[in-house]
Simulated assay, not measured.
Amino acid sequence: MSMSDAVSTGALLMIGLIFLVLLMQYLRLREIWHLLLGNQMAARWARIREMENRELRSALRAEKAHVEQLQRKLEIVLAMVPVA
């Protein structure tokens, strides 16, 4: 084996090693990318649920106020009815 063959073989091994490292980095970055996309989707759903919760709490407050108003009206009507 001549010197140029040894250099060529060493360069080929280095290229193979660099390719292997790049492949490992690519796979890791792809995994991180998928995690990031999953987190984005989870954050989006969390925002949607939070908006729905706010709307439901607001509707519940309105319903409670309406029930209180109806109870006050009922008390007034009952006070107006003579007791026999």
Rank of each mutant, 00 (worst) to 15 (best):
residue 29 L to G: 05
residue 39 N to V: 07
residue 61 R to Q: 12
residue 77 V to Q: 09
residue 68 E to A: 15
residue 58 S to G: 01
residue 37 L to V: 14
residue 2 S to H: 13
residue 33 W to Q: 15
residue 61 R to V: 01
residue 65 A to K: 10
residue 44 R to Y: 13
residue 38 G to P: 05
residue 29 L to A: 05
residue 47 R to D: 02
residue 34 H to G: 11
residue 77 V to Y: 08
residue 45 W to R: 13
residue 30 R to Q: 14
residue 22 L to D: 11
residue 78 L to D: 08
residue 11 A to P: 08
residue 23 L to C: 05
residue 54 R to H: 03
residue 40 Q to I: 10
residue 62 A to Y: 01
residue 18 I to K: 04
residue 26 Y to A: 06
residue 69 Q to C: 01
residue 45 W to Q: 04
residue 15 I to A: 13
residue 41 M to V: 06
residue 6 A to R: 02
residue 35 L to N: 12
residue 21 V to S: 04
residue 23 L to T: 14
residue 35 L to A: 14
residue 44 R to H: 08
residue 68 E to G: 04
residue 74 L to R: 12
residue 54 R to W: 02
residue 83 V to F: 05
residue 76 I to A: 03
residue 76 I to N: 07
residue 60 L to E: 06
residue 8 S to L: 05
residue 16 G to S: 00
residue 36 L to N: 15
residue 53 N to E: 03
residue 45 W to L: 12
residue 71 Q to C: 09
residue 65 A to T: 02
residue 11 A to D: 08
residue 4 S to L: 11
residue 35 L to R: 15
residue 56 L to Y: 01
residue 11 A to H: 11
residue 33 W to P: 05
residue 35 L to K: 13
residue 32 I to P: 10
residue 5 D to V: 00
residue 16 G to N: 05
residue 22 L to M: 05
residue 9 T to M: 13
residue 7 V to C: 05
residue 66 H to G: 07
residue 63 E to I: 01
residue 34 H to W: 15
residue 70 L to M: 07
